[in-house]
Write a protein that binds this DNA or RNA. Structure first.
Lengths: 327, 327
DNA sequence: ATTTATTGTGTTACGTGTAACATGGATGAG
DNA sequence: CTCATCCATGTTACACGTAACACAATAAAT
């Protein structure tokens, strides 16, 4: 008990006793058992972060932001990789509940995440959604303005003279994909361009699917074939570029290409891709901030929703600077 | 007790009782408290991974590999970011000891990590070194053959006709940097090329330092100035390329550039950099495998050291295919 | 029918830290 | 000198799961 008081600076301990305790602690290399404390106090000072793909630089930056903030506030971060699978999420959350983590940050894999998050909520564990919303779930969230982002990209291409713009979009189930597609369609409508549904290749899960979908668009008859492509994210765009390379089409001369989300290192190496960049790190830090505030009871009962503004970064792949294309 | 027996399939439980227990478990949404189990059993089925930079794709791939294997074996991964700081490592390990993690995977920040790891070892927690060795520490380790890698890069440049090769190397304290430099020097010696110490800009901690060091090499008098540069890793190379760009030097025409470690997405986007690639994912999975085996008591007392072979990936930045340079 | 073995369930104690209360001694007020 | 107050430390009980042992009831063996 006295040792506990010394370590926590709680209650009163005679200065001389304190010194003696500290001495013995050093001699024995004693480290208090956080499991026991957690068991007693019902909180573990541990939060979890489940991302849908840890090897994607986009999520990596989020991990870093979260880790940074958590560390500074004395929290430990457990990282999980859901691989875009709700089932894996479920397993993770089960294990995390068992380990009595204090809260969760998640880039949900889909609308199926709803049940999982509701179960978590019923247990009293707060959670914050990052990057993606889940239908029917009201919680703190930090997302990007995907409608606005898509409009920026689309408008930019239109201004460069493109009329037939292809859209290779990500998983239909994700709020980001839906919003991006909506923004795309809105931008076209606003400029009076008719939407050709053939030009939307949606629901690409991975890079190789983006490759395939892009190829399909390239096989359209010349009068329908797009002159520019928008890729739904930073990974899909790689598949798109690979498809163009395999078809012998130069970017941006034969085909303009733009996408969502910057690849920091790749862009530094070669500022090539025109993108809509998001303040990704803030996704992580703000979400972590929200969660920590909730854990400290500093947050309103009302969920907070932050929507961060994207920014158009014009580089070479859109063909800007080459003058508008005439086709 | 009976509930415990049902959940763990241990001891005997009447089938009818088992059903009844399972029913109630479902009704109450009961999830056993892993803290209590951990407290009692003295193991938590949690391992930690401390990397020196989570936002670096190189380490990210390791994180993914580790997470994957751990997850499949019922372990949870706590991820820490040391930011190349031994002090941060120390804080982390202290917190992890307190949380009674079962073992640690670490890309150590330097030789100062020795004391930390020794302290961990005294507590009986096994650990595995990834990517880097620490002087005086004998433990399981998974590293790359950095001497061989450096030789591959250097020989390749020599074969392309380069005689004055600059080397922008990473932190002197890291075994990887030292080995790479050694391989570089060996390759030069083997081909009878005299080593000019001015051409080695070592101990660059970050990208901006690589930028600065590269600039210094460019300011050498023409007869000393290198015609090719080797960057110590995938981040430093960005700084080097930026320096060349700011100096108006085209790669590879005016300066060949090669480096260690591939950037998967960047290379897919544009296969530009000639690199020595390492089987990075295996770094993570093999290390995790070693740790799990040790935790299961399946491992020898003898530490195991695996050295993975790097591979030269020739692309455009070295100028291969343009024919040897004549200078 | 009696002994032995088997089966299913319950009890106790432990791992470790800490809130709440208890205790004994010293100090101070009256 | 006595009673109240304060201070430092100790005790007890709890958080929760589980190994080890105990026990009653049944089944099998003699």
């Amino acid at each position: 008990m006295t040792v506990s008081r010394v370590l926590n600076n709680s209650g009163r301990v005679a200065p001389e006793t304190r010194l003696r305790v500290e001495q013995v602690i050093r001699e024995l290399g004693y480290v208090p058992n956080a499991l026991a404390t957690g068991l007693f106090k019902g909180r573990t000072r541990t939060i979890a972060l489940i991302v849908s793909d840890i090897s994607n630089p986009f999520f990596t930056v989020i991990v870093r932001g979260v880790e940074d903030l958590a560390q500074r506030n004395g929290y430990t971060v457990v990282v999980g990789n859901s691989d875009e699978s709700v089932e894996k999420e479920r397993q993770y959350v089960a294990s995390l509940i068992s380990k009595r983590i204090d809260g969760l940050l998640i880039t949900p894999a889909g609308n199926g995440s709803r049940r999982i998050l509701e179960a978590l909520g019923r247990r009293g564990s707060p959670f914050v959604l990052i990057d993606r919303d889940v239908e029917g779930v009201t919680a703190d969230s930090v997302t990007g303005d995907n409608v606005a982002g898509a409009k920026l990209l689309t408008q930019h291409l239109i201004e460069l003279g493109h009329r037939r713009i292809g859209f290779i979009n990500g998983r239909r189930e994700l709020s980001t994909s839906r919003d991006r597609q909506r923004g795309f369609e809105m931008a076209l409508r606003e400029r009076g361009i008719e939407l050709n549904p053939v030009l939307i290749g949606d629901n690409a899960h991975r890079r190789d699917e983006a490759y395939r979908v892009a190829h399909q668009l390239l096989e359209l008859p010349p009068e329908e074939r797009p002159t520019a492509l928008i890729a739904g994210n930073n990974v899909l765009v790689i598949g798109v570029i690979e498809a163009l390379r395999s078809a012998g089409l130069a970017v941006p001369e034969a085909m303009a290409v733009v996408c969502f989300d910057d690849l920091e290192l790749a862009s530094a190496l070669d500022p090539f891709l025109t993108v809509v960049a998001q303040p990704v790190r803030s996704f992580g830090t703000i979400a972590a901030q929200f969660l920590l505030e909730r854990l400290n009871g500093e947050a309103d009962v009302q969920p907070r929703r932050v929507v961060l503004t994207p920014e158009l970064v014009v580089r070479r792949s859109c063909g800007a600077g080459l003058g508008p294309l005439v086709i």
